[in-house]
Each structure stands twice: as structure tokens, then as C-alpha cells.
Amino acid sequence: MTGLPFDLQLLNLCAALLLLVSFAMLTQRRIVNLVNLLAFQGTLLLVATLLLAWRTGQRHLYLSAVLTLALKVTFLPWMLHRLIRRLEVYWDTEPLLNISGTMLVGLLVVVFAFGLAQPISALASTATRSSIGIAIAVVLLSFITMITRRKAMSQVVGFLSMENGLFFGAMSATYGMPMIVEFGVALDVLVAVIVLGIFFFQIREQFDSLDLHHLESLKEGATVAQADSIVEDS
């Protein structure tokens, strides 16, 4: 460790904090905090990208840093906050598993991800190859976040955090994806969030709730679910 240059140490710190933020998301009950954590994750990603760009001298990484700043740090959190205000959903329901249980499952997933990443890291030649495990862990933890939440809002945040994990993975394994792919993914995410935002209103119009549980029942059952949800929400 003592041999590592300082910027690599900072990169490692960013990676460790990314992992921590994923856990914080996993255990967060309030949706407003969840969005703030997403913004913080984006900021960490931005710092990591800039550090890597400065270290390797890869120009296109600066471009993707700008993209991260515009989209992940600024626009998406702002958009989500606006949605929260307009939909008036400040609280998530209790996650399906209790918090301590979720944490333990998360830890097991991290161990699994680190094991999975070991052969990949051994083959990679980048300076940041050791963070590949963390990137995989972030992706898997976001999966769990999506699985254990009922509300549509938190699932979208989980989805965005997963994209952040993938981005970080690509960065650590190969210093970023080709620019065209990155733009494509960014556009996809942007459109997805906008479309999902419209979806939220539709879902709420139909069921008076953002609980995705209601979507599982067939049409005949929908009226029953609707009645249930009105009782639950009131």
C-alpha cells in the first residue's frame, strides 16, 4: 500500500465509498435520502473519472466526466426530486426484508462479487483493476435494492445506481467504454427516467399508489387491489 501513488489511493477511496453508498441505499427508508445518495454516488463517480482521466491522460474520460456531471450529478437527481414533490411520495414502505437481514445478504453478495472479479482483475492491465470487484458488487447491490423495494420510485433509483456501477466497472476494467456506447447509454437512461416519470403518474392514476405490487394482479383483481390500496393509503 505504501508504494501506491496518492492519486491511486484517492481512487481506491472513491471505490470504497461507492461500495458504502450502495449499502446506504440498500438500507435507506426515505426516498428523498435515496435520491440524495444517488447524487452523491454520481459525484463520487465524477471524481473517480476525473482522477483517472488525469492519471492516464485519456481525453475521452474528460468528456464522460462532463456527461456524468450533467446527467448523474445534476439532472437526474433534480428530475427525481421534482417527481417526488409532484407525486408527494416521501416515504418508502418497509422493505421486504428487515434492514439487518438485507445488510447480511448484501455482505454475502459483496463476497461473491469479489470472488467473481478476481480472475477478471488478474487479466486486466489497468491501474484500477482491483476496483472491478467493487463495481460488480455495486451492480449486484443495486439489484437487491430493486428486488427488496415495492415502490416504483425506489426501483428506479436502484436502476440508476446499477447503471452507475456498470459505468464504474467499465472504467476500472478498460478505462471507459467507447464514446458512442457511453452516449447511447446516457441517452437511454435519460429517456428511461423521463418515460418512467410519465409512467409513475399513470400508475398512480390507475391504482392510487406507486406500489408495484398492484401490477402483479390481473385485470379482474385490479379493482380489489385498488380498494385495498385506498384502505392502505388512507
Binding site: I99, M103, L107, S130, S131
Partner: peptide, 20 residues
């Protein structure tokens, strides 16, 4: 206390992975 445990284990795992 599960949070404390989580932080401790994360520290351990991060050390094993990053050597930091």
C-alpha cells in the same frame, strides 16, 4: 450494531480487495 458490523466487514473486504 448490524451497521457497525457492516462497516467492520466492509473495511475487511475492502482491505482484502484493494490492499488499502
Amino acid at each position: 450494531l448490524a451497521t457497525a458490523f457492516l462497516f467492520a466487514v466492509l473495511g475487511l473486504l475492502v482491505h482484502l480487495l484493494l490492499g488499502a
